[in-house]
Design a protein around this nucleic acid. Sequence first.
DNA 1: CTAGGGTTAG
Length: 687
Amino acid sequence: MNERQRFAQLLRVCSKNLLLDQGLQVHTTILKMGYVFDMMINNDLIDMYGKCGRCEIARKVFDKMHQRNVVSWTSLMCGYLNLNDAKSSLLLLCKMGRSVVKPNEFTFSTNFKACGFVGVVENGMQIHGWCCKTGFEWFPVVGNSMIDMYSKCGNVDAAAQVFDKMPERSLISWNAMIAGYAVRHTGNKSLVLFKEMWTQGLVPDEFTYTSTLKACAGIGELSAGRQLHGFMISKGFRLSQQTIVSGSLIDLYAKCGCLFEAQKVFDLVERKSVISWTTLVVGYAQDGNLSKAMESYTALRKSNIPVDGFVLSSVMAVFADFALLQQGKQMHAYMKKVPFGLDISVSNSVMDMYLKCGLTEDARKLFNEMPKRNVISWTVLITGYGKHGLGKEAVNIFEHMLSENLDPDEVTYLAVLSSCSHSGLVDECKKYFSRLRNDPTIKPNVEHYACMVDLLGRSGRLKEARDLIENMPVKANSGIWQTLLSACKVHGDFEMGREVGEILLKKDDVSVVNYVMMSSIYANAGFWNESERVRKSVKAKGLKKVGGQSWVEIDKTIHFFYNGDERHPLTPRIHEKLKEVEKRLKEEVCYAYEVRFSLHDVEEESREESLRVHSEKLAIGLVLVHDEGSEKDERRPIRVFKNLRVCGDCHEFIKGLSKISKKVFLVRDANRFHKFENGECSCGDYW
DNA sequence: CTAGGGTTAG
């Protein structure tokens, strides 16, 4: 082996083991020995610098070369891709097209990956055409990376076409296609492919399992997932050694609500990664188990695994959902100290937390300070303002976003439409709805139509709202009928209410809300027997109300209450306080229990009793008891949170309370924020 | 020089 070859070999060792310092030393020596224009050595230098993440040096080497071959070009592209700089790779490919050196299958494959990374399907299609012209179309690497590119760009059909036409399909091709279908709701196709490849005698590997499990999670296929779990065990597949496969299995169980099994799989994995932990934390949080979610996060922090932006965003989302402002602030402070603390997704999650805790100004400030924003940043802000009843502001932000030439996606449209409908901005709502319908990139879904139904329903145009539902190009769900039903109730349209109600009850939805609303509509119109019939069918079907829960955060501790909850040690004082408030309300603001909101088949007095112990009242009672005697922070708004919608009676109660106590109450319920101040609520009377 | 995998924010 001559000296030149020895240098090349040294560089390859440095490249493989990411030894940048040694690589730099070898580079210096090479220059001293005069190998300045040696193509092989320069190519290896480019590769080494690219792998070590120093593309700027690789580029310098590349630029100084007198002669370059396809490896020189491709190595530099790989370097850029290694830094997630897909754009530079693609620009280099353009430049290459004008040079004398021709791309080969590796060049194409690398750039397909680049297209998939940034999701530019147009560029991918151009390169696809280029492959066809130059005869690289049928190379296995090219086909595999095209499947991946089309899938990542969201065009699974194009990916499937490539797959179907491939002359030779390797395990990698199958895996890429299964992964392509595993996103969104096409997971059943992944399962079909899995079976097909198995019958063709191909042996699945860890990649196959991961994607197929992901497919199951996407479509909620618990039983297929379980079968796959059993299948892997029967094949002697060691899950304890498979961090990634186990990760998708944990996610599957968690998404299906089987946290016990998720935890069991998690426990047996020997080398847990930050992703394994994140999956578990998110799983518990989405299952509503705050303490387990936090326990898992704390355990992660105690392990020596470094956290990343993903896990912080996830945990911040937990704080947002449970409105844990103090913990959220604390973590925000921590985020400022870590390198990824300024990632867009991290900042977005913080913004959302502030908004969900009612601190719109802090969220706005953060938004203004963000060096980079994406569609989600804008959408978070629009949603937040909308939920606070600040529809005009939401519209302004949407317009601002458009003026910056950013394309709204379906969630952004939903945010702006619901903001408009909540605030009764009729013209704006219609305008944006028609903009949505004319937007070729987005298909309006049932949620978008529900906003329009809500808008029409609020203004009493029930007939129009119903026509819209019956003639829209998407399938109606219970939610949209429920929106109309609630409008019928508000406007006292008994005839339509009854019809809509019967449609809903026929859908056999398990949601008790529909029954309650129907029963109430019948009762209001004096049809007591009908009201009774509906109420009885709830019992007959064994349906149970989703438990209402309210909570408050006091000194970083969160206190949960359900209706009639007596677990809190201060319960007697809370009851006492509430009775005292109630007495004053009756005297000073003519408050009467709105028993029509209550549907219990009981005497008036005990109906009052059941309203008195509603979870939101108990939570407020605790704050009042806690604040007794302390003079500090009189103007600080009292924040209360409820998982369902705040009940009509409690709404009146808090209104009155805000008047006699001169305090501000900020109540976040499942729908929006209610700011109670001096006897008024920001939502008007349409709660 | 090269192809495939698990987590996140609305």
